[in-house]
Amino acid sequence: MALSAAQRSKIRRLSQPRELSPDEEGGELNIVPFLDIVVNILIFVLATVAVTFTASIETTPPAAGGSGVRAEMQSDALNLTVFVVNEGFSLKASGGNIAPGCQQPGPGISIPTVNGDYDYDALTQCATRLKASSDAYQDETQFSIVANPGTDYQVIINVIDAMRRTPQGDPLFENVNFKVIR
């Protein structure tokens, strides 16, 4: 038997999905603005961290007039000193001043500037050659720096970098001592 109009009407009414009251439908916080802030902070922190990785170079008090802290040197040590002057780098070892070209002892600036800039690659090559010149120098890890009073700290750090390792990553002179001429 077919349903009456009243029954069909009641069925339509009862079968409608129940609308949620405002209290029921707002169940979660809207955290999208908070998420925006967090994402922005995250990007800022990541960008900032990427440019400020620091490192430290170890050294000891400078030697002035024979004082200062230095590791004991053997008599046959290379005892290398790099003089940073306006014209370039002058290297002095236990055998005397290194001549230009870094091949033999002699007077002059060992590594002259190129177009007014210090030649750090040539300094690395010269240090590599000097260290390889004798088996007695293989265990030597320290060198000294003396510079003109007005030499920038950045230049000193570049010299330390150039003297530390070869381009292939082999260690050269990893310990630096500062010297000053009174």
Binding site: T54, P62, P149, T151, Y153, F178
Partner: peptide, 26 residues
């Protein structure tokens, strides 16, 4: 300048500081 750096390092050495860490940017 190197002169100022050496003065600071020397003064540190005279006052019982025997090891320094020079901070740099990688």
């Amino acid at each position: 300048p190197y002169r100022l750096l050496i003065e600071v390092l020397f003064t540190l050495g005279q006052n019982g500081f025997g090891r320094y860490h020079l901070m740099v940017i990688q």
